[in-house]
């Protein structure tokens, strides 16, 4: 890998963002009625002067290309339009919710990577064994159950029947008096994190299993055996690191999957993050807000990809950023 490769990836990320921007711009303009009509439906009829001022203020009277440029500049400056639902700048709404999403998205990503990789490595190493096949069948089943159904089952069992965890929200009602306590938030986050983790473990597992399976036929594994290493030592010291190489890029892709899962899980647990915000925006057809969320999701995926690109050389010595192989 060379610097040129990284430059190209960066350029793709930039292009992807521009494509997202252009898409949202086009959709906003094809929307029936204009922006103004959506926010203040009767203004143009009742007070044309005010409507004209409004249009000038927002640049709605300019040519399409000018409006596009203006839109791009605005987005880059952090002006992502106004939410119909909240009547607030989209970015401000999203920023606040993003934090809550990360509270559950981060731990569940880490957990599902750790669990999926560990179980997948073991399963792939022992491929064809009874353990492998039963784990594989189990994971195929777990992965086939939709995330929203896992979320509901968890609520039904652990929240409703066993009463071990709260049914939803991010803090108890006492928070009004004593303030939001971390332990309380964690208790509320437990089930959503579990639901997200369960639904994304099988994907990681399946890829890691395949990746590990490929290493079992490698010559360095035979060398390791000839040294007299135990099977588990060979897996840990020799196969694992090699099997992880292709996973790095895949995990960035899986984040997109997690984002989808979080929409359902947050909605079901009333967790006040981007996912629940998506649901609310969908319910009232708040297109500007939805598009803002879409842009934010694009940015998250782009950053995950960049992080993957940068971390790849850390585990594969053959790849050095900015250096010829």
């Amino acid at each position: 890998m060379k610097a040129e490769y990284l430059m190209r990836r960066a350029f793709y990320s930039f292009l992807a963002f521009m494509v997202s921007l252009t898409l949202t711009f086009v959709l906003l303009h094809l929307m029936p009625g204009d922006y103004l009509h959506s926010i203040l439906p009767y203004l143009a009829e009742k007070n044309p002067d005010a409507a004209r001022m409004f249009r000038e203020q927002f640049g709605l009277n300019r040519s399409i290309s000018e409006q596009y440029l203006l839109y791009v500049v605005n987005v880059v400056r952090g002006n992502w339009g106004y939410s119909f639902l909240y009547g607030l700048p989209v970015l401000a709404v999203i920023e606040e919710k993003l934090r809550w999403t990360l509270v559950i998205l981060f731990p569940s990503t880490v957990l599902s990577i750790l669990i999926g990789m560990a179980v997948g490595a073991y399963s792939g190493w022992r491929n064809g064994s009874k353990t492998d096949l039963s784990v594989l069948n189990f994971m195929i089943f777990v992965g086939a159950v939709p995330s929203y159904w896992w979320a509901m089952l968890l609520i039904l069992i652990f929240g409703f029947h066993l009463n071990l965890f709260p049914l939803g929200g991010y803090a108890s009602i006492e928070a009004l008096d004593v303030g939001v306590r971390i332990s309380d938030v964690l208790r509320h986050a437990a089930l959503p994190v579990t639901a997200l983790t369960i639904s994304s473990v099988p994907g990681t597992y399946y890829l890691m299993r395949n990746s590990t399976l490929q290493t079992t036929g490698e010559e360095y594994v035979l060398t390791a055996r000839s040294k007299g290493l135990r099977e588990m030592e060979i897996l840990r010291h020799h196969a694992l690191k090699n099997a992880m190489l292709p996973m790095v890029t895949v995990i960035a892709l899986e984040l997109a999957q997690m984002i989808m899962g979080s929409v359902f899980v947050e909605t079901i647990f009333s967790w006040p993050g981007l996912g629940l915000l998506t649901f609310e925006a969908l319910r009232v057809r708040d297109l500007p807000l939805l598009q803002g969320i879409f842009l934010m999701d694009t940015l998250m995926v782009i950053f995950a990809n960049i992080a993957a690109d940068l971390s790849y050389p850390l585990i594969d010595p053959r790849v050095k950023v900015g250096e010829n192989v």
Partner: peptide
Amino acid sequence: RGREISVIFQSPNSLNPVL
């Protein structure tokens, strides 16, 4: 294996590339 009887393989891929 290794301490009494050892094997020398033909090399290109017999060493672990990441260690």
